[in-house]
């Protein structure tokens, strides 16, 4: 991949890669923008940048993350995602074959989700000005009537539900990045969750206080954020948190706390107690929620602690980390 003078042909080549991969009526129209009809009601919009290393990992690549992540950000509001945009910053010298692979994955992910990428942009920058590929995606969606989830809505007594096993994505990425070979392959859980959230909203409606996708920082960061935004605490039960044995073993080996490890196809929902059973049942009936579990409760706590009952009966504080897990033992 080259850049600058003589890059015109290359630019066209790149355009073609994406157009072929994302193929839809909007892109075929060849405009610098796309028009669509706005349904009645309240809309949501989100945008996110994707910079991951490595770009390819077991169970996905940066392209699937960019589609799933943005769909999920829309879906966590309870909205139905409608359209995406995608913009690429590509480092000079990046293999075209890899770019095509990423584009194909994105196209497939968007088609499978039924959320088309209707506009986009590409830029090639000098070597060293980017790390392979950076992707920025935006998404819009429409909220069902009456749904208005807010991050400060959790209240004491509410139930905390997680949609499935935690830590899969982070460990998959790490195993690739660190050259770690585990006995079983751990795949990223990268997935679009909007059909799962739709099923939940259909039975739970306004009893679902809020939903979050626990990406970077894992469910520990997500629960801590909610605790502070809602001025509550959480009590969760270690034994109830779904965790794949191979992920548990990898975390144990690497000295990681799975609660701090990223997920890309899981959600955490805070649900009013009276609706918890129905919402959980709807999740269990959905392919992406088969391992859903009620993992704990919201409690009153002026300190906004997230506490976990461990198998030893102690109450450990679940932390919000500034970055990587740093040693503390003196």
């Amino acid at each position: 991949l080259s850049h600058g003078a003589g890059g015109r042909a290359m630019g066209q080549l790149i355009e073609d890669i994406f157009h072929t991969a994302f193929d839809n009526d909007w892109l075929r129209a060849g405009n610098d923008q796309s028009a669509f009809t706005v349904p009645a009601g309240r809309m949501v919009m989100t945008t996110d940048g994707y910079v991951v290393s490595p770009l390819f990992f077991p169970g996905g690549n940066i392209g699937s993350l960019a589609v799933h992540g943005t769909i999920n950000d829309v879906a966590m509001s309870g909205a139905k995602p409608l359209y995406l945009s995608a913009s690429f910053i590509i480092e000079e010298g990046f293999p075209l074959a890899d770019l095509a692979k990423i584009a194909d994955t994105m196209g497939a992910a968007s088609r499978e989700a039924g959320v088309p990428i209707i506009t986009g942009d590409t830029k090639v920058v000098e070597r060293g000005k980017a790390d392979g590929v950076f992707i920025s995606t935006a998404g819009v969606g429409i909220l069902p009537e009456g749904i208005d989830m807010r991050s400060n809505a959790a209240r004491s007594g509410d139930c905390v539900i997680v949609s499935g096993s935690i830590g899969d994505h982070g460990v998959a990425v790490m195993s690739k990045r660190e050259n770690l070979e585990f006995d079983t392959d751990i795949l990223s859980d990268s997935a679009a969750l909007h059909t799962l959230t739709a099923a939940m909203v259909a039975v739970g409606g306004t009893s679902i206080r809020l939903m979050r996708d626990p990406t970077r920082g894992g469910i520990a960061a997500t629960l801590n954020e909610i605790a502070h935004q809602s001025s509550v605490g959480f009590r969760i039960d270690e034994e109830k948190i779904p965790l794949k044995p191979e992920v548990a073993a990898a975390c144990e080996f690497l000295g990681l706390d799975p609660l701090n490890v990223a997920n890309e196809g899981k959600l955490v929902a805070v649900v009013a107690p009276e609706a918890a059973d129905a919402v959980l049942a709807a999740m269990l009936a959905h392919p992406l929620g088969q391992e859903a579990a009620l993992i704990g409760h919201v409690v009153e706590d002026p300190h906004c602690f997230v506490q976990m009952e461990t198998s030893f009966g102690g109450g450990r504080i679940v932390d919000w980390l500034s970055g990587e897990q740093l040693p503390r033992i003196c």
């Binding site: 144990e252 080996f253 690497l254 000295g255 990681l256 897990q325 740093l326 040693p327 503390r328 033992i329």
Partner: peptide, 10 residues
């Protein structure tokens, strides 16, 4: 090398 962070201390 501190393989496994705090785990290595245990």
């Amino acid at each position: 090398p501190l393989a496994g962070g705090d785990k290595a201390a245990r």
